[in-house]
């Protein structure tokens, strides 16, 4: 099948088992939310998929094995991620950030020239993430939400087909959340999206399917309603006054 396939994923930090045999299938075009209490291993799972931490098991995307590859090789296979605390190049402008994200495939000659104008895919991404007006500002001067959007824009120009978003709406205002939620819908038209999120309200509105993690394992999986009805989930997570 296409899409993301994770089987028996294990990550151990100095004897501490952060991921303890995670299984996860995200079909192409899905918007999958991953939730779970702090320390459940959600970020670690993205780290393992993108090659940042060593893991055992199996991770496949579009028929390619990902485990054991270097970070930049995995990125070149079309896997893009954002970070829990937005990581953009603060001294470079929004435009430069996006242009770099679009560029790993560029040839040496084109790298040695100065950028002229705005490449079409960058212009499109600027529109999509609503940053056209600030494109010449250093990314470090952006508001928190705008940085998150810039990161998503970078994934777009990078032409990632699997987007792994680590708490993209954390710290966003209500309107920004709505805009981001709509953006997720747009993104998923020709991509697979996996979102780590704590915000239950946001999840109910924009998730198609949900995976609940707890203590390094998958606890429950299904539609929002199914997951919410699962008593084990209520116990560890939703039960904390979030329904």
């Amino acid at each position: 099948m296409t899409g993301l396939s994770v089987r028996d994923l294990r990550v151990v930090f100095d004897g501490f088992v952060a991921l303890d045999g995670v299984d996860l299938e995200v079909p192409e075009g899905d918007v999958r939310f991953v939730i779970g209490p702090n320390g459940a291993g959600k970020t670690t799972m993205i780290d393992a998929i993108t090659g940042l931490v060593k893991a055992t098991g199996h991770v496949g995307f579009d028929g390619q094995d990902l485990l054991g590859r270097k970070v930049h090789r995995i990125a070149r296979l079309g896997i893009g991620r954002t970070f829990q605390t937005a990581a953009v190049f603060e001294e470079l402008t929004v435009l430069q950030n996006l242009d770099i994200a679009a560029g790993w495939g560029r040839r040496a000659v084109s790298l040695l020239r100065a950028r002229r104008g705005v490449p079409p895919e960058v212009g499109k991404a600027l529109e999509t993430v609503r940053l056209s007006a600030v494109r010449d500002q250093p990314a470090g001067t952006l508001a928190h939400g705008q940085k998150q959007w810039l990161e998503i824009g970078m994934l777009l120009v990078q032409d990632a087909r699997l987007l792994l978003l680590d708490e993209p709406v954390a710290g966003m205002s209500h309107d920004e959340r709505d805009a981001t939620g709509e953006l997720l819908g747009v993104l998923s038209r020709d991509r697979t999206v996996l979102v780590i999120e704590h915000d239950m309200d946001f999840l109910r509105r924009y998730a198609r399917t949900v995976t609940v993690m707890h203590a390094g394992k998958v606890l429950s999986e299904g539609s929002v309603a199914e997951v919410q009805a699962d008593p084990r989930v209520q116990e560890v997570y939703l039960g904390r006054g979030a329904s």
């Binding site: 930049h72 990125a75 893009g80 990581a87 001294e91 430069q96 770099i100 495939g105």
Partner: peptide, 14 residues
């Protein structure tokens, strides 16, 4: 400059 300021980050861009 991007590599100077965030060497690990550019890996995720390929």
């Amino acid at each position: 400059v991007a590599v100077r300021d965030a060497e690990e980050r550019v890996r995720f861009l390929g």
